[in-house]
């Protein structure tokens, strides 16, 4: 038939994917309350990337799509990474993280109570 990608994803695959996304969202929120320092952002990004890949693969039908479209969207994310990477090489190698005179805050080290994630 002339429809593009003439195989359709079944209904319950969609529902299973939706369920997985909700679970991952709860996981993101739950994991945010623990203290891993800078690692927190890395974990949050990792889970978010999994969710993004899930949405792209099933909801956006990349599973039945030509490799061309996969390469296209893959190159976008690659160049975002290049964009950040090279700026990070510059900024992190000339920025002394000890003293930033513009935002001299008194360090926020009050005792970290185990409140709801909102406090983190």
């Amino acid at each position: 038939m002339a429809g593009n990608g003439n195989h359709t994803t079944s209904l319950n695959t969609y529902l299973k994917v939706y369920g997985a996304l909700l679970v991952l969202t709860v996981l993101t929120v739950w994991i945010a309350q623990f203290h891993f320092g800078a690692l927190n952002t890395v974990i949050a990004m990792f889970i978010a990337t999994i969710k993004v890949l899930v949405v792209m693969y099933w909801f956006m039908h990349l599973n039945h799509d030509t490799t061309l479209n996969k390469v296209v969207i893959g190159s976008a994310f690659f160049f975002v990474f290049v964009f950040f990477g090279f700026i990070a090489i510059d900024v992190f190698s000339r920025h002394n993280f000890s003293t930033t005179e513009l935002s001299k805050p008194q360090p926020v080290q009050q005792q970290t109570t185990e409140e709801a994630p909102k406090a983190e």
Binding site: F79, V82, F83, F86, I89, D90, S93, R94
Partner: peptide, 22 residues
């Protein structure tokens, strides 16, 4: 061409390492 833009900024305060890579 997406990896070389820093050669416009050798003397603008860019770090030496980034300058060498660019």
């Amino acid at each position: 061409s997406f990896f070389v833009w820093g050669h416009h900024m050798f003397v603008s305060g860019q770090s030496e390492l980034a300058g060498a890579i660019f």
